[in-house]
Write a protein that binds this DNA or RNA. Structure first.
Lengths: 202, 202
DNA sequence: GAATCCATGTAATTGGTTACATGATTCA
DNA sequence: TGAATCATGTAACCAATTACATGGATTC
């Protein structure tokens, strides 16, 4: 009956952004500093430290965390962030709430979108570069998975432990990167077989 | 020898952003209006119309495109964008230049990251929701692929036609979504088998 | 001697999203 | 009657990136 609340910014107050929820996610494992949050998160998603500090400040204001300053010699003071009970409430409410659709930003795909304009050699070069990148990612995540398995052989099978989450996320990455590589190889064969016209240089 | 030019914003002048290159990509197929650009691109990536109009204006200023105004009855005038030779140069230079790493923004994965905190029922609900979404995407892209194949049976095998690009990109989506679904099913079985503690409510 | 790690932050800019403004036509 | 489609655009805001500022310890 009310004509208001048409937009998506319905409830205000406790709103944090995506990065905010990711930060809650790591801090649920153990309290740490802003700097440490970045190194913990960057295997999962790209993070800019400059975005983290102001966010932590506003999250502290909202009562989601408290900071404990630790003096260090030769280094600046460290501010360890501890979550409050409100934080876990907020995180769990977010998890059970609606989930937005994923968005990928991939220049490689944008280039493939337009690469019918280029010659076969250039197409192959682009794809081969991608394969190299995929190989390095596959190597990285295989190592990460192995390390997880040797460090926490028990916890991986307990869905109530954070290691379970890491394990399944690493496996997902691996599976998708491998599938992506297969796709690259299939494309390569299609490009090589039916060689296209503007092939003069090289 | 020069202390300058440390940052990433080396050369200025002709710079357009990602969306700009995507717009060049569609317009290389055929000239169209801003409104049509959005509907053509949105199968490939999310686009906001409000971002397109100012971008098109600045691209016209930079000499990448010219606009042809078509008067319509009952509707506002339509502005068809035609690319200039500078545009294809710019696009090809971008394709052969360095490619940035992909970035994904996926709330579902962020939730999985933290979902060791929740109960098994909530875990299953989250995964099942994802499976439903994946199924709908898979259905959409299978249809799109079939439509492509019936409309352009010849062009699909010619890497010099834009239909080739569409074809491989659709196939990639399908392959990755299917792999993602398999992963979901594997996770589901791991959650169901080793039922975790906080299981009280239904 | 230069680069990287540790550790914090602010400021400026670009990119992306939502809201607002306008208005006829078609469809449920 | 209300929503959706066509069609253009502006303004405000939020998110993300880059640059700037500081400074000791360590590593190449």
């Amino acid at each position: 009956m009310n004509k208001q609340a048409t937009g998506k910014k319905a409830e205000k107050g406790l709103q944090i952004n995506r990065l905010g929820y990711n930060i809650l996610g790591v801090l649920m494992r153990e309290p740490m500093s802003g700097y440490e949050i970045v190194s913990a998160l960057e295997k999962f998603r790209p993070v800019n430290i400059s975005q983290v500090y102001p966010l932590l400040a506003s999250m502290e204001e909202k009562g989601l965390l408290t900071t404990e300053t630790i003096a260090q010699t030769g280094k600046p003071d460290k501010k360890i962030c501890h979550l409050t009970p409100l934080a876990s409430e907020t995180l769990e409410a977010w998890i059970s709430g609606p989930t937005e659709e994923p968005v990928v930003r991939d220049d490689f795909l944008s280039k493939v979108y337009s690469f019918w304009l280029t010659g076969a050699a250039e197409k192959r070069a682009l794809i081969n570069e991608r394969i190299e990148w995929l190989d390095s990612e596959i190597a990285f995540f295989s190592n990460a998975l192995e390390a997880l398995q040797t460090h926490y052989p028990e916890e991986l099978d307990d869905p109530g432990k954070w290691q379970f989450s890491r394990d399944i996320l690493f496996r997902r990455r691996l599976a998708l990167y491998r599938e992506d590589k297969l796709w690259c190889l299939r494309v390569l064969s299609r490009v090589t077989d039916t060689d296209d016209k503007n092939e003069a240089d090289t």
